[in-house]
Design a protein around this nucleic acid. Structure first.
Lengths: 237, 237
DNA sequence: CCCTTACGCCAACACCATTGACCTTATCTC
DNA sequence: GAGATAAGGTCAATGGTGTTGGCGTAAGGG
């Protein structure tokens, strides 16, 4: 790489931009998040981000090793926001439910960013903290290690997967979104009842359901299943 | 739109390309799928697709209303492939499990395409067929309509969400992928045991698990939970 | 066999990420 | 305080992208 990136904590000289802005990783990530939410996921580009910061696009490469690295930093920020203010109560099912909803919610608050980052493992501090917390909750609840790891994996991936899916629906550019949302009304509700009897029989229920997230239902089902497994275990020994 | 797209069935004049290829929606979608799998998701562009077809990029706009429409067509093709050869046996839990694994598998066979399409509702024939099938299985199994709709929604979104998430992992460009996969070995396995006791205690299990998909586990948990609900219902009446 | 127009092609536009060279100036040393 | 050093902001250029308007050719209907 032609321009090695200086790690944030080693940064010393902070020369202001031609337009007087003093850059930092934080400032860049926060500006990127704001741009994503205001102008859609196509609205984030090195050029526009540079312009929004009052800096030349190429300056970003002094802070991030390309747009991909910036993406990872944004993901880390989202995970951090999900964990802010979250605390373990000791009721494992309640705690996991709460954490799942928080992760899902934090991502959905920035759908455009979520789409870019939900699938990436960053290995940064806040993400690791989330992993440690989930494993701790399950092991403390009495799940044996192999079981705890399985459930941890299913729980965390399901949360991120739904976050990405639901964010994707919100993040569609305007023409695509209205077309997708209208599908249930326009296409599905008008299918011939003889060819599609089951859709026809439930079309009012479907129309009411399909524009919401299925995550809370899926989460509760996962937790219910985990609880059943826990109860069928021999008492701790 | 300057160049209105002629629907496939209304097409009559099929002028061969300068290089002798006769275009069609099918041919374009199949070529796009092949390119995605061979050259990665960055490898699909109007220009390259045009080149692969022996046609000018702009010609594609005679068939699809932009790259987004092409994306939807690819998604429809993937759903179709998942359904090919699938048949209902009457054992609802087995049938749903099979269908879920097929959808997941069909998308993962084309990770790059899956990433682009898994979040989109296309409203095209084969997608509708899948929806009808799932609803039918649940209603026939004895779930009351509101319950059937909830579970249908959770099931189908869970399948697509995991397909997208897992495909995303496979679809990363080479440098990113090896970095992501290495995370479990390099970062997580070496965390200090006093700060991250739960990760440390399970690190061998984690390393073995985390590079696989959590979908089969999550799917089984969802189905187990559904079965428990079904059993707790008053006998059909 | 002629006419019409569908459809393939060309050229151009505005955008994108990224890089290498340049130069200003904040900070460190003496 | 003066001078040296290099961090980090800027400029310019490269080679990619999706998309569009206009043009001409030849396919197929009559």
């Amino acid at each position: 790489m032609a321009k090695p990136v200086v790690p944030e904590e080693a940064r010393r000289r902070r020369r202001p931009t031609r337009q007087g802005v003093v850059l930092s990783e934080r400032l860049i990530v926060e500006t990127a998040l704001r741009m994503l939410r205001e102008h859609g996921s196509a609205g984030l580009s090195a050029r526009r981000l540079g312009a929004a910061l009052g800096a030349d696009p190429s300056t970003l490469y002094r802070y991030f090793d390309g747009m991909d690295a910036l993406t990872l930093a944004i993901g880390e920020e989202l995970i951090g926001r999900a964990l802010d203010g979250w605390a373990v109560t000791g009721r494992w099912r309640h705690d996991l439910r709460e954490l799942g909803l928080r992760i899902h919610g934090a991502y959905l608050a920035h759908p455009q960013a979520a789409v870019l980052t939900a699938g990436r493992v960053t290995g940064r501090p806040r993400e690791i903290a989330a992993d440690e917390a989930v494993l701790g909750i399950l092991r403390t609840a009495g799940f044996p290690d192999p079981e705890a790891v399985l459930i941890y994996h299913a729980f965390i991936d399901q949360s991120l997967a739904f976050a990405a899916l639901d964010a994707g629906a919100l993040a569609l550019t305007e023409p695509s979104r209205t077309s997708d949302e209208g599908q249930w009304e326009s296409t599905y509700a008008r299918l011939p009842a003889d060819e599609y009897p089951h859709i026809a029989a439930t079309k009012r229920l479907l129309a009411a359901r399909m524009n919401h997230s299925a995550y809370p239902v899926a989460l509760d089902m996962l937790l219910a299943s985990a609880e059943a497994r826990l109860r069928s275990l021999p008492p701790a020994g």
